[in-house]
């Protein structure tokens, strides 16, 4: 009973995780500029691969695989915001502008571009 419940849970997680990965890539396609695209990639993308790894951990059942998969999830949660932040900072300081539909940019007043 317990085993079949866990199987069902990991089946649900697999579908939901794949759905979030698909949503992230649709967002990558539809959003207007690099900063908004980063929102889709860093949130929905991390969520997608994280959920798929958790599904693998639940399905595997032995503690070694489980702890490695969970360590992987924690690692992705730690690194995804860092790489998004680095890329956004680099793109902004080099001079890639926000898309024309943006409503405000308080950073431009305070940062002198060199």
């Amino acid at each position: 009973m317990m085993a079949s419940l866990l199987t069902l849970v990991s089946a649900a997680l697999v579908v939901i995780g794949a759905f979030f990965a698909l949503v992230a890539s649709i967002g990558l396609l539809r959003l207007p500029d690099v900063y908004t695209r980063m929102h889709a990639a860093s949130k929905a993308g991390t969520m997608g691969s994280g959920l798929l790894l958790i599904a693998l951990a639940i399905h595997a059942g032995d503690t070694g695989t489980m702890s490695r998969a969970l360590a992987g999830v924690v690692f992705f949660l730690l690194t995804a915001p860092i790489s998004a932040h680095l890329l956004a900072k680099a793109a902004y300081s080099v001079g890639y502008r926000l898309d024309a539909i943006s409503v405000r940019d308080e950073m431009a007043e305070n940062v002198t571009n060199d």
Partner: peptide, 11 residues
């Protein structure tokens, strides 16, 4: 990120 998800599903 998608490739990692793929590997998990294949696993």
């Amino acid at each position: 990120a998608i490739a990692i998800g793929f590997i998990a599903v294949i696993g």
